[in-house]
Write a protein that binds this DNA or RNA. Structure first.
Lengths: 190, 190
DNA sequence: CGATTTTTTGAATCATATCAACGTACGTGG
DNA sequence: CCACGTACGTTGATATGATTCAAAAAATCG
């Protein structure tokens, strides 16, 4: 399990075997079942999650009681409520497993120790967040520049395997429209 | 000019006077006039911009030839096309000054040297990007969970001074609706 | 001041949501 | 392994929020 994280880190920065062992010792493996919650609104988010296998979702409850999916995390993605994690304030989000998922968990305090011991990790996460931010801005571009139908086709072309893995109502929520609209769009051509 | 950047960095990580001098030596001050372009679609983005005074906008051209604003940068914000900057591929965006603006510019190669010489900068940018990513996800939440009218009021309450500084058609673009809609919304109450 | 840029206003149109009803699949316990 | 219940997906009719377009009014700039 840890080897997958170590391999991912080594794509970006060099770390020794000893450092890899330190990282492993500061992370806990965790198996979560489909629909199992990891964070609820009002809680302070104290954990940084790395998905080794499976899917997590970060979502919010809207005024009208519906769930709005803000982000997914799949294999080799990090997820947390970074606002709550950073400032140690109550979260406005939920984190939940979409399917049976294997995670590595790093507590905030452990992460801080790791940064102090292994400075390359600052570099690693700098790159991870830089890319996540860039991807998030691209997503905003798609949201504003494409119609909802185009958005669906674009996402479907970019991540066809992922689209197969998740329920349609979750995909609809993530893309910012209703399940009915997705159903009708799929009925048109494919 | 550099002192403002140094002060900002020191809010997050400690750096010595010598290190501050190295940072200053690797950055160029630049004054840009309103509407002056800093990046055009098709160019590779090789510069990281830090706004000390003024406003920049990152925008894309849509299929229909209109400008879609993806991000603003104001005092003490960093801006670049991080996708293009990171991978050294042609950008799909434009960067332009919204008003007369004072910038610090760091070339990609200079930034890499700085990271090698001053590891705390990795930590600084890790924090900067983590917050930018968190803010971007919050923005996606607002886009999906609020109506366009609510979005305007929310943004107007959160950043009233900024709203005064930029033309309404730019605010409308940033918030994802038309200038006409914004005009009609403002006519309602405030 | 005149010229350009930005904002306003109104009417017609369009994309997408909503609601309700029905169909299908799925997984859980008997 | 089947049957039942719940969760998920589809469909059509109607409603609505926001866009589009065009034109006029206001603000800003050289």
């Amino acid at each position: 399990m840890h080897t997958q994280l170590i391999a991912h880190i080594r794509k970006f920065v060099p770390i020794s075997e000893e450092e890899a062992a330190v990282i492993a010792s500061c992370t806990q493996v965790r198996q979560v079942k489909k629909k199992q919650p990891l964070l609820k609104e009002g809680q302070v988010c104290t954990t940084h999650y790395f998905v080794t296998k499976g899917v997590l979702r970060l979502y919010a409850l809207t005024d009208r009681g519906t769930e709005q999916i803000i982000q997914f995390a799949i294999d080799n993605w990090w997820l947390s409520d970074y606002m709550s994690f950073d400032k140690q304030t109550p979260s406005g989000f939920y984190i939940q497993a979409v399917e049976d998922t294997t995670l590595l968990c790093i507590e905030r305090s452990a992460q801080e120790q790791l940064f102090a011991q292994i400075p390359q990790l600052e570099s690693y996460f700098r790159i991870v967040f830089q890319r996540a931010y860039a991807a998030s801005l691209m997503r905003i571009q798609y949201i504003f520049c494409l119609t909802k139908e185009e958005r669906y086709h674009h996402f479907n072309n970019a991540y066809p395997e992922f689209v197969q893995r998740i329920p349609q109502y979750m995909l609809a929520s993530f893309l910012g429209f209703t399940p009915e609209f997705l159903s009708k769009t799929r009925a048109k051509k494919g």
